[in-house]
Design a protein around this nucleic acid. Structure first.
Lengths: 282, 282
DNA sequence: TATTTTAGTTTCAAATATTGGAACCATGTT
DNA sequence: AACATGGTTCCAATATTTGAAACTAAAATA
């Protein structure tokens, strides 16, 4: 455990540096298959995985077998296909509760939700991608997991750019390398150079815009959540309904930044939690 | 892939039969460590894990290393402790969306929530435990992940007993073996014998009661979600506020059963989903 | 400050699990 | 009936895992 990186309250969240190249033996190779299955977003058949996995038939077969035995995958008999298993849901509960900003930020998001009535997102950086860890909807009660856990591109979302803007140079380089720079709309930044210029603007302004760069008609403002030492912990955003103007969104900027700072402060104070919830049920 | 078991639309969700005894080699042993860390519910230090893991020092050390490299765990520098990593949240998103009943049941839960105004739970069976996959709160907007992904005992919860009651004998035996039968309250069933009698009653009645068996003051009624072939897919429950009487809850029974049947029907029809969501963001 | 303990990390040869080409089986197709 | 295609099993070669023990770092004690 040499070098460090991102995450909640100065946490060493993995070393993405070595994730390229290093396979971590059998375990790493098996988990890569798990990712592969998850990426499909639907049950996948053996034959579909085989070319993408880059593994010999017998090896892929054994890995899928193992993962299924372990409940990390589930096998759908009817479709004869593999899909991510429920064990992951159980494990993720613990991850979300302990390694994400969501539990800390929840109260502040509620507050901001009431104040603005707009759609809110809380995100963190994971492997150069934006990982949404919580959300408040404009209208009705929150859709759950369907949002939390979702990933998106960093280079063309408000929260993504807000976080990239405050990354130290080495981490930024690593993150930039992982961006696909696919052109979603005609305002999308499509190369590292122009994105870097944008990041300068973001730092100057203290918050980021998403100017329909990912989806037409979708704009938002986003602010980074920074630790006392300036480390990037995450970001929050306010997304406009179709009708809200750019100017309208801009009026939220102070409130947004203020909320981000409150969350940052709360995250820093989150020392020695001690509390151990009982298994409440029904 | 010989024998089959539980889950959504006749899915083979893992083979718990062999999970005892079988280790699935390095991968299985490593994932066991992941579970161990997750179970703690807080960041854990190496030394705390060592006795519980039952592995040689060097081996445990390497496993933790690998898991951290892989983002399945995160290492907290300050506390010098391991906790579940964000990669799990990403993976679980896929699992929840594809392998749980939640997306299918969501609409029906919303409806039931409106009709009753009560707290609702949607659960599935995983490794003999109750895994909550969705929830509707009585009052305010849903707390997210904090509920979904949570696990609880099967033998003393409404949803748990509702599911156990409809398990085929072999699966039931396996599940019973996994119950701790800890006495939470004085109505808790504390052995397999009396629980089996209770399960008979549940089958006769078509739904289950939780009569403060897990937590004092908490009662609920629960109905199983059964496939056309009678396989247990999951269960839903309505939990009473403190003030609601037993009789009051009972009036919901028909509605509850009806909803469970609707969900079952929807789950069975859920063939060839095709739909592939874009990476909506903000 | 010196000494001991505890906690965590690295080494290395032996033991073992992993590997993957190839054979095989089952199902569906022409 | 012959032939694909998709999936499963075998097995010897080999790379990986294994864990006792040595080691280092940091903390507790003297």
């Amino acid at each position: 455990m040499t070098d460090a990186s991102r995450s909640l309250g100065e946490t060493t969240e993995q070393t993405p540096a070595r994730s390229a190249g290093k396979t971590d033996g059998t375990v790493g190779r098996t988990l890569a298959v798990l990712d592969l299955v998850a990426e499909f977003g639907r049950p996948v058949r053996f034959a579909e995985l085989l070319p993408k996995a880059g593994l010999p038939k017998a090896t892929l077969y054994r890995f899928l077998q193992t993962l299924t035995n372990q409940g990390m995958l589930a096998y759908d008999d009817e479709r004869q296909a593999y899909k991510p298993g429920l064990r992951l849901v159980r494990l993720a509960h613990a991850a979300w509760a302990q390694s994400s900003l969501a539990p800390i930020a929840a109260g502040y998001l509620d507050q901001l939700s009431q104040q603005t009535g707009q759609t809110l997102h809380l995100a963190q950086l994971d492997q150069g991608m934006v990982l949404y860890v919580d959300k408040r909807n404009a209208a009705r009660p929150v859709e759950m997991f369907s949002q939390s856990g979702k990933v998106g591109p960093a280079y063309c979302t408000g929260v993504g750019k807000a976080m990239l803007a405050y990354l130290p140079e080495d981490a930024l380089q690593d993150a930039l390398k992982r961006q696909s720079f696919h052109r979603f709309t005609d305002t999308t930044f499509t190369d590292a150079e122009s994105l870097r210029a944008e990041l300068d603007n973001i730092r100057a302004r203290g918050f980021a815009w998403d100017n329909e760069e990912h989806e037409p008609g979708i704009r938002c403002i986003a602010a980074p959540i920074l630790s006392a030492q300036g480390r990037v912990l995450g970001a929050i955003s306010i997304t406009s309904g179709q009708n809200d103007s750019h100017a309208q969104l801009e009026t939220y900027a102070p409130l947004l930044k203020e909320t981000a700072e409150k969350i940052a402060k709360a995250a820093m104070e989150w020392r020695f939690p001690e509390q151990q919830r009982a298994t409440e049920t029904a």
